[in-house]
Design a protein around this nucleic acid. Structure first.
Lengths: 222, 222
DNA sequence: ACGATGAACGTTTCGTTGATTATTCACTGA
DNA sequence: TCAGTGAATAATCAACGAAACGTTCATCGT
């Protein structure tokens, strides 16, 4: 039913405008309805509740981010290890820029995290699938030697935790964050290449990206 | 002045009892004073304010923890790499046990973190000194090949962030946490040994603890 | 002089109440 | 039948006076 979808979209647009301007808490369902010249009650024919409107907005925005991350993950011109680093890096930088540009997004994210934690976990899971794919690819190319790809992906996300949650950034600016990010990424990705690059059978040629050359410090984004 | 010190200690004991029973917020200065049969005003001759009483309690408790961690760091029977892992591990487990046993501690920690963040940073810094020493030692023994020890210690703390803050544990029980901890620790510590274990000069004998054998999964604490 | 007091002060917290809000539902017009 | 309504309901919020709190200080007894 395209008519219903169209109305849903109109509601989302109106809500987005209000949320951006006044914030989630200070936007009432009645206001959103009034913007669309309808009654508050009618909104509930399109969304189960207020939080679901926020969720739908977040869905859209994460869809875009996910596409972008997937693009990075599939950039054929780069090694697997570089793409893995860039994936985490892009995630951090985009979060930083988003919050810098529009702090209201932070409020929305916080509310979603407390009211629908499973939604957040699901996003994490989707991103982990990208990581999975990269690890598998790296295993095949010889860049990595990871036994349990699922597990390793989870561990990477654990260790990168600090760079995902702005609450943990404690006023660090982007350059300082990137310095830390690079340090942690280097450690982790060297760790992934560890066994492949390491001499259990020493005659095996070093992986394409030798551990000592992995992850040159990244220039700070503009 | 030992008399003053003795009174300080009595105040701390009384406060500790109240904080443990009723929590920081629900304990008033007047109550602590009444427990010691003195006036509220007199407390201020021994402590600048309520928060400083909490800080003194935390100081004591972190002194003990730090001693314990230092003991682990200097355990002569273990390799440097094992001690480094055990250091982080002990920190996580002790935090877990503490909160499990007395959730009030969590409230105290949260209050200190918001009211005196520099105190928390200082604890982090002290622990980093232990890490520094271990990395230096590992460099000498050939287990590690870390160029910038200070920087590497900071990166380790960053990557271990998730295991330090109970807020990030999201209801995971200790076994699940330890599983994640082991995974991340393996990645990181292999990363540290990376260059030492890796064949830049392939004739160099593999480090004492070959990367592939580093960090066997740790049995879950009792 | 000094250790201690407790009333006094400014803030923060709390409980109550009245208003606002999210949500439901019986109903309407097409 | 179905998109839409708007009054009714229940949950939440905001405001405000009262109580409690952390902290200070003039004062007391020694």
């Amino acid at each position: 039913m395209p008519a219903k979808d169209a109305m849903r979209q109109r509601i989302l647009d109106a809500a987005k405008k209000r949320f951006k301007h006044y914030g989630y808490a200070k936007t009432s369902m009645a206001e959103i309805a009034a913007d669309l010249q309808m009654s508050p009650g009618n909104l509930y024919r399109y969304f189960p509740g207020k939080i679901d409107i926020a969720l739908a907005i977040a869905d859209d925005s994460y869809e875009i981010r996910h596409d972008h991350l997937a693009e990075i993950a599939h950039d054929g011109s780069k090694s697997t290890i570089e793409r893995l680093r860039d994936l985490f890096h892009a995630d951090m930088v985009e979060t930083y820029k988003t919050i810098e540009h529009d702090p209201r997004t932070f409020e929305l994210a916080a509310i979603i995290k407390t009211e629908r934690p499973e939604w957040v976990n699901n996003q994490l899971k989707r991103e982990r699938e990208l990581i999975n794919a990269l690890l598998t690819e790296g295993n095949q190319s010889g860049e990595f030697d990871v036994e349990d790809v699922d597990f390793a992906a989870e561990m990477l996300q654990s260790a990168m935790m600090k760079f995902r949650y702005p609450q943990l950034w404690s006023n660090l600016k982007l350059p300082a964050l990137e310095r830390e990010f690079n340090g942690v990424a280097r450690l982790l990705l060297v760790g992934l290449a560890g066994r492949a690059g390491t001499a259990r059978e020493c005659h095996v040629e070093p992986a394409r990206a030798p551990a000592s050359a992995i992850l040159p410090p990244r220039e700070v984004a503009a």
